[in-house]
Design a protein around this nucleic acid. Structure first.
Lengths: 170, 170
DNA sequence: TCTAGATTGTCAGTATACTGTCAATCTCAA
DNA sequence: TTGAGATTGACAGTATACTGACAATCTAGA
């Protein structure tokens, strides 16, 4: 067991790297979400999209991508799948022929209501191993970090902007 | 501004959900990594794989997946790409015809040395917006949470086990 | 020894993610 | 009004991720 200063490249350095930990935690989070929600056949991304469409009926795909900070290209196929499952409808906009407006179907709205307890169980389980005070600290730090790093991601969150163009905020 | 208790489904609930924050942070982390390392044409996953192969020369793909906690199926294509870039070699094991042993090439080892400063810049940038004390708190909580949730992921980290079978820890 | 069960690498299928490109469409300024 | 530039949705290409299946191979027990 050599005890001299670590050579420049070690697994310990990887295990302690923020990027590695964020990746691991994301994988764990998805795994827990899928487990709790397996009876609903809905992914975390699809859930977020459903909530956003529910909150902003008539939103278009580009603005939806800004509201949930997901890539626009990716979102296209997400919406397709939600459409295939009959949770979402797309109607051409009468005002702008490029745009397709998104609405929840009855079935989509019903699903959203039903799935909430499972989603909340999943979110709770992700933090469960920590002490309650630590959960709060972690979430506070993470909210801060994600917010301050917003511009570093390709698709920054633009919730406000997106809302304004829908005529809901002003 | 309504101040009554939030209706059951809101974007605010999504924005504050651990799963959503972990996803956003992971996307930001990848984005920063790719930006700092763009001259090397290496992804975060490929980097972790290179480090693990460097640390455990002669490891096979299944054990590699345990050492970095990545899915075995996914790892196959990651290794293929590293092989195509001439950073990694695969040789059949003389003892077990199912197994292919992994080694860094000279070019792979050289790349690993060169890329370290960029990787460290990336890791630092991810946490930069936080105060130094907060960075430490966040990392400490995250290390804890990932460790305690280890079994919740499909591919739990099994660094020790994997090492033993390579005859490096006995 | 012979076979049931485990392991390894691979593959097919699905679902994010991101980059870059494109045609259709819209906007706005000259 | 017309044309440059922006926007929208779609697509191709690459790279994780995970599930489930499979043949080849290895291991152990009967």
């Amino acid at each position: 067991m050599p005890s001299k200063p670590q050579p420049p490249v070690t697994m310990d350095a990887v295990y302690a790297a923020p990027g590695y930990l964020f990746r691991r935690m994301q994988q764990i989070a998805v795994s827990i979400f899928m487990e709790e929600c397996k009876e609903f056949d809905l992914t975390p991304v699809q859930y977020a999209a459903l909530v956003a469409i529910h909150t902003h009926p008539g939103i278009d795909a580009t603005r939806l991508s800004a509201v949930i900070a997901f890539d626009r290209s990716t979102l296209g196929s997400v919406i397709e799948r939600l459409q295939a499952k009959q949770y979402v409808e797309r109607k051409p906009s009468p005002e702008d022929k490029r745009i397709k407006l998104l609405h929840l179907t009855k079935s989509g709205a019903a699903l959203l209501k039903e799935i909430i307890p499972a989603v909340e169980r999943a979110q709770a389980r992700m933090l469960e191993p920590l002490k309650p005070a630590d959960r709060k600290s972690l979430m506070a730090l993470l909210v801060q970090l994600v917010d301050l790093n917003n511009e570093a991601s390709r698709v920054p969150l633009r919730a406000e902007d997106a809302l304004e163009h829908l005529g809901k905020a002003g």
